Structures are given as structure tokens and as C-alpha cells.
Amino acid sequence: MNQPLTIPSTRPSASAPRADHLTQARRVLWGVGWVWLALALVLAWLDRDGRWMEPGREGAVLIKLWIFWAVWAVLPWWGAALLGLRHAAGRSPRGLAWLAALTLVAYSGLLEPRLLTVREHRVQVPGLAQSPAQPLRLALVADVHAGLFVRDWQVQRLVDRLNALDVDAVVVAGDWTYDPPRDLHAALQPFARLRHPVWGVLGNHDTAAPGPPLAQALRQALQNHGVQLLDGRRLRWRGWDVVGLSDRWGGDPRSEAARLLPPDSPTAPRLVLAHQPDTATLLPAGSASLVLSGHTHGGQITLPWLTRHWVLPGMSEQGWFEGLHATPAGPLFVTTGVGTIGLPARLAVVPRIDVLVLH
């Protein structure tokens, strides 16, 4: 018996136009990302004007600002990679790896640096109960780095969070700036709204080590906003002896420690502010009830093995990278800070305010 002939249909599949639309959408998103990279250079050029910059480093500042603006291109690229999952090629190991990489860049460059957390720690101060000094609640921050990557709204948010805390004083352990606007008075204006006493010291980026020569203007701006800078000075407050030391790279903390911290044990609980944690090695044994520092950023970007063995040792030769440590001078607490340098990114080191309950 003759079988009937079957003529294949020439009508296009219903999924074909949909696939074409997805392909077109992916091309548009990739194009948007590349266009944004070009526009980011224009934004960086405009953003560079009116900043404190280290002489001879103008090109480096431009590149950093370009990265700051260019990272937003990852969003349309991430969308294009996500649409690619609808195709078999997009689900290949290469396509999935590309999507994972874009997700990591988006999180570390756009989300985590803009987060802000608060963590409370109870720190026992030996001899406090036998002294006339009062137990304290301190809010410790460091490495604000207002300027290149940390913008006005982030400084304002930081001050709002500090004002919402039940603390006796705010301590800022240096590095207030990072290639900031020329008008430091306006850039740091939010600190004038703090409802708590504010003590601080300058960090290496505030004293041209490295960085632009803005220390004098910075001191004036901070003092105008009610911040007590304690570099090389002593303050008596609520029975506590509060001592500030200048930065290891941009100051002379060794001679300040010799002048302000006698080798015998303090008669009152003594709080020492020092930007770099390794400054504690310059202090006489037993001379501090507690040393407060920053500088390390906790590594800022946590990568397996690399951060621990290549990045952090440059921040502290003693291995005092974060948290509470025992030193010959006394206990040392290192905060991971709130800002960023080098790259506008943080990974697994969320910006943080540390509330220290000294009891």
C-alpha cells in the first residue's frame, strides 16, 4: 500500500522569535555596558577637578575614579549573562563562570562598600573597679577615607548611625580622608552634628604618607566641627587618661610615647589612640589599659591565601589585623574601618562601627 507523503511545515517555530528577542536584548545590554565604560572616563575627568591630589599622582587618581564609575557597567553585563542562561551556551561552564564573576564584582564593588554594620564588644579593663574612673561605652571607627570613593551621603549616614548609638564618646582612629574635595570644611561638615564628644588622631593618608599635603587644613576643619584631635596630647575625662599618638609614617609617635607614657603602670585607666596597630610596639610595657587602632581595613578584600599572606602583613608586621589582641603595652583593639582605598571595593569585610563596652 502506498504511504501518504508528509510535507514538512515551513512555518517558523514559536520559540524562534523569542530566541531572537533574547539575543537582541543581550546585545543591547552588552552595548550599554561598553558605552558606560566610555562615559565613565568623562565622569572621572570631571570628578577629578577640585580635589586634593598628591603631586605627580593626578593620572593615578583619574584611573581610580574611572574604576569607581566604570564598575556600574557590570549591571547590564550581569543582565546579559543572566539572559544567556536561556540558551545552552549560557549554561556552559564558561557561561556560568562569567555570571559568577560578574555577581562577585557587583557585590564587592557596588553593595558591600555601601553597607554599614554595628558590632558590640565587651572589653574587661583590669583595675577599673578599684579606680575612680567610670565604665565607658565607646563607638570606634577608623579609615573613613572621605573623598575619592566614600561620598558625602556615606559620611552623613555614618554620623546618623553614630548619633543613634547609646555611647559616651566617639573615637576616630585616623585616616579621615582619601583625595578629598578641596573644601574640607564642607566635606566633613556632618561631624559637626555628632551629639557625643569626638576624639581622634590623624592617619597616614591624612599626613601625606602617602597622600596630598592636607594635614594643616584637615586639622582646622575638624577642630571647627568640634573634633578633639589628640595627636601628641593627653586628655583627662571621667577619671580616664586618654592619650593620642601621631601616625607611624607621618608623625613621631615614639617621642610622644616617651613624653606622655611613663614606663610605670598608670595610676588611672589609660586609653591610647593610635592609627596603626603596630604603634603599640613603641609603648612601654604595661603603659596602656587599652590601645585603639584601625589602618588594616581587615584586608578590605578577602581572597583565599592572598589577602592573609600578601596584603595584611603590610598593614601590621605583628599580625594585629582585626579585633582584640594582647600586647606588652596592654590590650589592643583593631577595627576594620568603614572606607576603602586602592579599589572601591570590599569583600567579606563589611564597613563597621565597633561599640566597645569597657567594664
Rank of each mutant, 00 (worst) to 15 (best):
R259V: 10
R259A: 15
L260W: 08
L260Y: 06
L260N: 08
L260I: 06
L261F: 15
P263M: 09
S265I: 08
P266H: 14
A268P: 02
A268N: 14
A268M: 14
A268E: 15
A268S: 15
P269F: 12
P269G: 08
P269V: 11
R270L: 10
L271Y: 10
L271T: 00
L271D: 02
L271Q: 08
L273S: 01
A274F: 03
A274C: 05
H275M: 09
H275W: 03
H275D: 05
T279A: 15
A280S: 15
A280D: 01
T281K: 12
T281Q: 15
L282C: 05
L282T: 03
L283T: 05
L283Q: 08
P284G: 14
P284W: 11
P284T: 05
A285F: 06
G286M: 12
S287Q: 03
S287E: 04
S287W: 09
S287V: 01
A288T: 08
S289T: 03
S289C: 03
S289W: 10
S289F: 07
L290Q: 02
V291P: 05
L292E: 07
L292C: 05
S293N: 04
H295V: 07
H295W: 00
T296S: 01
T296N: 05
T296W: 05
H297W: 10
H297Q: 12
G298Q: 12
G299K: 04
G299A: 07
Q300N: 13
Q300F: 11
T302N: 13
L303I: 01
W305K: 09
W305T: 15
